[in-house]
Amino acid sequence: MKAQDQIIHDSLRETKLADERLSPYATCNSDCIKVKNTKKKAKEFDIRWPFEEDIDRVLYSKSYSRYVDKTQALSFFSNVHITKRSLHVQWVSRIARQIGRGLNLNLDLIEAIALGHDLGHAPYGHVGEKAINDCLEERGFGYFTHNANSVRNLLFIERNGIGYNVSLQVLDGILCHNGEILSPIYKPDSHKTIEQFWEEYEKCWHEKDYSFKILPMTLEGCVVRISDVISYVGKDIEDAIKVGIISIDDLPLEVVQVLGKDNKAIINRLIGDLVIHSYHKPYLEFSKEVFHALEILFTFISTHIHHHPTILKENEKLTRMVKELYDILYDDFIYRHYPQKGICAHVSKMAETYQQSPGELIVSDYLSGMTDSYALRFYEERFLPRQHGEMIEDY
């Protein structure tokens, strides 16, 4: 047997053995479905397992690079230790893989979903997301959600509009990762087909709040969905304490008694409780005590951090800024202002299939792809006067 043939044979054997060691409720590597009907070259061999390919496609995407300058929750505090989106997705991945290891699930699938779940987030997090959504809704196009936009980034925007060939299970986990919802039970929609996935994807753009109604097709997707919550509840509290929005003594006593009062304790309790109560089950659930405490904590964070008066005041400015950016970018694109730069130059470099997208969506793509600092610089350039030096008159 030739050396390369032997490597291929051994790799397939290892993949099969790995699948046999997984939980009966896990997603097997052999079940991986690619959404694009592309074929590798006859002589091409890839040592990676199927979902490992997806991990690398996420990691090497331009969208992933921009995580480093995108907000998680607190947009306008000058503190390098405040969570950015790049750290958040790594923590989601770490937590999800800990849960997945405890439940003997497919860790590669978990990692790919976790690292890619926020690729389509707008600048300034959920504030930017809502502002772009309002702009699309006002123009009668539909709605903007970062989870559907994350799928769009991977499939239709990356590589100058060619996109990547990512697996159905990863894309579905990204589409259904909604971390703004708590559920007593996380049960996958295990009979979902590729046709249902595409239907759900389209409805996320055209039916209001539809993304809140869909469920992941895999248990791994469910793990990432709850890990998104686990990763930020304790960290948002730590960040809020750092900047003086709340103090540790503000935490509800019923939360502290059950979950603890710092990020480490909260994460340990939530992961441990979830694994214990979900072991050998086709769904995820917490104990009643822990879930009740998590609900209280969830409400506390929303009220005392995300809706703190200081944050709401600044978020109004951010919302106005993002909407004004959308309006001016829309005019630039429709009337072909500045054809040699900006959004017009960007679109001219994209694949022909991408250029046929609706203008409202192209503007959404361009704006949502901006990082926080780039959006601010762009706004200053287009809306604020520039200092050109001081003229000294002759006397």
Rank of each mutant, 00 (worst) to 15 (best):
residue 184 P to V: 04
residue 164 Y to M: 06
residue 140 G to S: 12
residue 192 K to D: 12
residue 186 Y to H: 14
residue 174 I to D: 09
residue 183 S to L: 15
residue 142 G to S: 06
residue 150 S to M: 07
residue 147 N to K: 05
residue 156 F to P: 00
residue 194 I to L: 15
residue 177 H to I: 06
residue 155 L to N: 04
residue 174 I to L: 10
residue 169 Q to K: 08
residue 145 T to G: 14
residue 141 F to H: 11
residue 165 N to L: 08
residue 149 N to W: 07
residue 180 E to R: 02
residue 142 G to Q: 11
residue 172 D to P: 00
residue 160 N to V: 02
residue 191 H to V: 12
residue 170 V to P: 00
residue 172 D to F: 01
residue 153 N to P: 00
residue 155 L to I: 15
residue 183 S to W: 09
residue 146 H to Y: 11
residue 179 G to L: 06
residue 146 H to R: 03
residue 191 H to N: 15
residue 184 P to Y: 06
residue 158 E to G: 01
residue 192 K to Y: 07
residue 190 S to W: 07
residue 178 N to M: 09
residue 189 D to W: 08
residue 169 Q to A: 07
residue 152 R to Y: 13
residue 145 T to V: 12
residue 165 N to C: 11
residue 145 T to R: 10
residue 149 N to V: 02
residue 161 G to A: 02
residue 164 Y to Q: 03
residue 194 I to A: 12
residue 167 S to Y: 04
residue 178 N to E: 13
residue 148 A to M: 08
residue 181 I to A: 06
residue 172 D to Q: 05
residue 190 S to C: 06
residue 148 A to D: 10
residue 157 I to Q: 14
residue 177 H to Y: 02
residue 193 T to N: 07
residue 176 C to S: 15
residue 172 D to E: 12
residue 189 D to I: 01
residue 182 L to P: 00
residue 171 L to K: 01
residue 171 L to M: 13
residue 183 S to R: 14
residue 157 I to L: 15
residue 154 L to K: 01
residue 164 Y to L: 03
residue 186 Y to C: 11
residue 170 V to R: 01
residue 160 N to D: 15
residue 161 G to Q: 06
residue 182 L to G: 01
residue 176 C to K: 01
residue 176 C to V: 10
residue 179 G to H: 01
residue 160 N to T: 03
residue 188 P to M: 09
residue 140 G to F: 12
residue 176 C to D: 06
residue 158 E to I: 05
residue 183 S to C: 04
residue 172 D to G: 01
residue 171 L to E: 06
residue 140 G to K: 08
residue 185 I to Y: 10
residue 173 G to Y: 08
residue 192 K to G: 10
residue 159 R to H: 12
residue 156 F to D: 15
residue 179 G to A: 10
residue 193 T to Q: 10
residue 157 I to K: 11
residue 182 L to F: 02
residue 169 Q to E: 15
residue 153 N to E: 15
residue 146 H to K: 02
residue 163 G to V: 13
residue 148 A to N: 07
residue 157 I to V: 14
residue 194 I to W: 03
residue 174 I to S: 04
residue 149 N to L: 10
residue 165 N to A: 06
residue 171 L to P: 00
residue 147 N to P: 00
residue 163 G to Y: 02
residue 158 E to W: 05
residue 175 L to T: 05
residue 168 L to A: 07
residue 186 Y to L: 13
residue 139 R to I: 11
residue 146 H to M: 09
residue 162 I to Q: 11
residue 139 R to E: 13
residue 145 T to N: 15
